[in-house]
Design a protein around this nucleic acid. Structure first.
Lengths: 215, 215
DNA sequence: CCTCGCTCTATCGCATACAAGTTGCATGCG
DNA sequence: CGCATGCAACTTGTATGCGATAGAGCGAGG
């Protein structure tokens, strides 16, 4: 099932153990090595990660707070996000990210915009499809929108929503590469222009596009 | 500081210990027996509640997930919500609850509406001001809006936001009784009428009213 | 008088041990 | 052969002990 060692990988080793475990389990979930609905046996996972149950439980509590795992009866299970919830989340994101985009319009540093744009271009120009880079570019664009809205509460909210959104993984990511990229570029352009209304509209259009692609 | 015993009160005693601790600490915070910024010493609080550190830590992790406590360095502190964050939260709530109200318009059972309306009337007619009842009525109205929106994700989001909003406690609640009640009644009326646009507008107006009252 | 560094204690992070509840299997009886 | 009952392994909840560390207090030097 899971063969990754905790120590390996890009995990900073001077962090607290429970934080490392948190990151480890988080990526295990996001990379589908633990899939939705799996029930988590504490001792097993703890052994697998080479730690005791205490820091693991701590990590699981935190993950529960972020909605990546839920408690079913007495044990934790990896959160399974169905189509309905995915669509609901997208709907809320449409509202929130639209607002955030409007607030951020004209407030994003040119350097940040340029960097994100370069990444999108690189992604489009890549000879093969790179899922990880796709995700990262996605994160960057949405971070651009959130972090400059001047409303950290709003930003955090969107972040949490996107987290859950990711758990719904039936759609084929590769098919979304070109639509995502073009829509992202439109959002960025709107942000750059300072046209709040346009930015909001483009962000909402992007989310609606995701929505339609999943029906 | 805190003199409440864990066993006392209306806490179900057949729940898991950590759940009881969770409820206990939650109410301690919401009732200001633990005020914002207080650093929590695990062993002290655990002794106070008559449990060991383990279930207490578990409860604290959960509370961290809900935003009632945060980790400052190595120890937990009761989350202090400042004016800035409060206003930001209200702004997001304006967006979200407006949307929820629009979605709920015409979908709320008459019985539920009647019950809430009765409670508001009772509150207004009470000879003395009852803070607890004020809070509860508030909860009911907003629950009315959320629970019938058909979007549980949205509802949960609003719930979390309201949780944090409550931590900001400098405004004088009693002064808000009449404005809250009248605005709530307007929202309810709009919900009843089925006019989505009006419902959204009234909900937003309510949140903006709260905003203005706190500047 | 202020600042830097040292020590020392209170507190936290983690592991482990123990208890209680549950599930599933096997065995025996009807 | 089927069902009930009891046992056994597993899993989670809670307590506790120990090592590590941050932060306070204090003293010395600038």
């Amino acid at each position: 099932m899971v063969q990754a060692e905790l120590k390996s990988g890009a995990i900073q080793s001077d962090d607290a153990l429970s934080d490392r475990v948190y990151s480890a389990v988080s990526t295990l979930i996001k990379t589908q090595q633990l899939h939705g609905g799996d029930i988590i046996v504490e001792s097993r996972l703890a052994d697998l990660l080479g730690v005791s149950r205490t820091p693991l439980r701590e990590a699981l509590q935190k993950l529960e707070g972020e909605g990546l795992v839920v408690k079913n009866g007495r044990s934790f299970v990896v959160r399974a996000v169905g189509l309905a919830e995915y669509l609901q989340s997208l709907k809320v994101r449409e509202i929130l990210e639209g607002e955030a985009a409007g607030l951020s319009a004209g407030r994003v540093p040119a350097a940040a915009i340029a960097r994100v744009r370069d990444n999108i271009d690189a992604l489009l120009g890549a000879p093969v499809y790179l899922p990880a880079e796709h995700w990262q570019s996605d994160d960057e664009v949405h971070a651009l929108v959130c972090d400059h809205s001047g409303n950290p509460v709003l930003a955090r909210m969107i972040h949490n929503l996107r987290m859950v959104t990711r758990l719904y993984e039936t759609l084929n990511l590769a098919d979304r590469l070109v639509p995502d990229a073009t829509e992202h570029l439109e959002i960025i352009e709107a942000l750059e222009s300072g046209d709040a209304k346009l930015a909001r509209q483009k962000a909402q259009a992007h989310l609606r596009s995701l929505y339609k692609a999943s029906i």
